[in-house]
């Protein structure tokens, strides 16, 4: 063996920042995550040039999947122009030379924090969700080794118990975002802190979702056409946020997830949380040729 076989000409970074050995590791983990939907696959999770907790898990998956003809959309809280989404997008295009887009229907790869776009994703699209805490059992069991055994035994009784306690105490299930959901009838996962509004979009979806927690070093996945069922009691139906009647003050569009904007007079205004979806509506209203994709929700209700 010669030294030249072990090395290559010096360059500051590889394409996509991660070197091949880091990418191979993530590839192996992604395949296992797809093979066992909802099961959290541990991975090494290398440091990347943005801070931990700021989307490094999602970023490592995006960087692994990156190729020059990828069309990448990055959103944070539904918005493309959010500062951290801008920072991640800038990094991805810096190390990947990829095409950027805000348009959900144009993207091949969407990295998102806390939202799933309102326009339906297709079979050829990949959604990468950033995950702060991958462990749905954390509220009942902070020890990860014990939580792992509980997943092994499909022992989710304590999760049901906290939902039941909420019902007894408040008369409602109080879980806001990160609603625990059963995947493929076997593993409970946290869908990441997406609102309840977005969880049904994962159920038997056309697209592939990869969820990645960089700090906690876990990757899991929801393949297309896989059941994702929020944990609910038979007699207490799953309820999304009451946003079906709210209208966006900018675009006038109704029936989608909104940001609430408190006003000085004590009232609130609402605007579409999916910012580029809003922009498309405004441009269309202004007479531009804009095509708006099919949406998951119609008239404020999940369409099936």
């Amino acid at each position: 063996m010669k030294l030249s076989e072990l090395t290559r000409p010096w360059s500051a970074f590889s394409y996509g920042f991660l070197d091949e050995s880091a990418k191979r590791e993530i590839r192996r983990r992604i395949l296992k995550a797809i093979a066992v939907p909802g099961y959290q696959v541990p991975y090494a999770s290398r440091e990347v040039p943005i801070a931990r907790g700021w989307g490094t898990g999602g970023l490592q998956v995006t960087l692994t999947l990156l190729k020059p003809d990828a069309v990448v959309k990055v959103i944070d809280q539904g918005a493309d122009d959010s500062v951290n989404a801008s920072s991640i997008r800038k990094f991805v295009s810096r190390v990947g030379g990829t095409v950027e887009t805000g348009d959900t229907t144009q993207a091949t790869l969407i990295q998102s924090r806390h939202r799933i776009p309102e326009e339906k994703l297709r079979e050829d699209q990949i959604l990468v969700l950033q995950v702060p805490n991958p462990e749905p059992l954390r509220p009942v069991q902070p020890d990860m080794s014990v939580a792992r055994e509980m997943h092994a035994d499909a022992d989710y009784g304590q999760l049901w118990l906290i939902l039941y306690e909420q019902l007894v105490r408040s008369g409602r299930i109080m879980q806001g975002a990160s609603y625990p959901s059963m995947v493929n009838g076997r593993h409970v996962m946290t869908p990441s802190p997406i609102p309840r509004w977005d969880v049904p979009k994962l159920n038997r979806a056309d697209h592939l979702t990869i969820l990645s927690a960089g700090r906690e070093k876990r990757i899991y996945a929801v393949p297309p056409y896989t059941s994702v069922e929020p944990l609910v009691f038979d007699d207490v139906p799953y309820r999304v946020e009451d946003h079906q009647d709210k209208a966006c003050w900018r675009s006038g569009v109704r029936g989608f997830f909104m940001n609430e904007l408190p006003q000085e007079d004590g009232s609130s205004l609402y605007e579409l949380s999916d910012s580029h979806f809003g922009i498309k509506h405004i441009r269309k209203a202004a007479g531009e040729a804009v095509s708006i994709g099919e949406t998951w929700y119609r008239n404020g209700r999940m369409a099936r």
């Binding site: 394409y15 990156l66 190729k67 020059p68 030379g97």
Partner: peptide, 18 residues
Amino acid sequence: SLELLPTAAESRTNAAFE
């Protein structure tokens, strides 16, 4: 300075993995 294009080997393994 960043290389913006993958090497032939990187493109190949990326495509195979996909």
